[in-house]
């Protein structure tokens, strides 16, 4: 049960059971992106609020499997307080890591680094990615 167990035992279950920054706000200073994974029904919405060049707040809501929901929770905790450039760098690197593509290992992914285990489960890469893709899209939409 090795690989799957390792994957779940770490941060994932903790965030799945106690999701951070969950629930959306109805506030025009937030940028909102909604992404669905039609193959399995994962459905995640991410909001980010930029103040100056800083991510002042990041929120998430939706439903899906544990990988999807926990990675959305980890995302919000990782991003709050980062500069826009730091946030983009971390998210891009994270997405490369879960897709098993070469990534810059010197960049601190903080708690999100546990999702390196996803590489053993290629069918689940999308689950781990959609919240992070939605987040990057909020930054793009901002521009």
């Amino acid at each position: 049960m090795s690989q799957l167990e390792n994957l779940y035992r770490e941060v994932i279950m903790e965030h799945y059971k106690n999701p951070r920054n969950k629930g959306l706000v109805n506030d025009p200073s937030y940028t909102t992106i909604h992404i669905k994974n039609p193959s399995c029904g994962d459905d995640i919405t991410v909001q980010s609020k930029l103040v100056g060049n800083y991510i002042d707040d990041c929120r998430q809501d939706g439903h899906g499997c544990s990988i999807c929901c926990s990675s959305a929770s980890v995302l919000t905790e990782t991003m709050i307080g980062k500069t826009k450039e730091q946030a983009q760098l971390i998210a891009t690197n994270y997405l490369k890591m879960v897709k098993n593509q070469p990534f810059d290992e010197t960049i601190d992914l903080e708690e999100a680094s546990v999702y390196t285990g996803i590489r053993q489960f290629p069918a689940r890469v999308k689950c781990a990615s959609i919240a992070w893709m939605a987040f990057l899209d909020t930054l793009k939409k901002e521009e």
């Binding site: 690989q3 799957l4 193959s39 399995c40 994962d42 499997c65 990988i67 069918a123």
Partner: peptide
Amino acid sequence: VHPHDAASFYAEQQVCLRAGH
């Protein structure tokens, strides 16, 4: 248990089934 979580468990045991809608 979300079926996608469950399906990964089955997949590790080479038990092939479908999860989703």
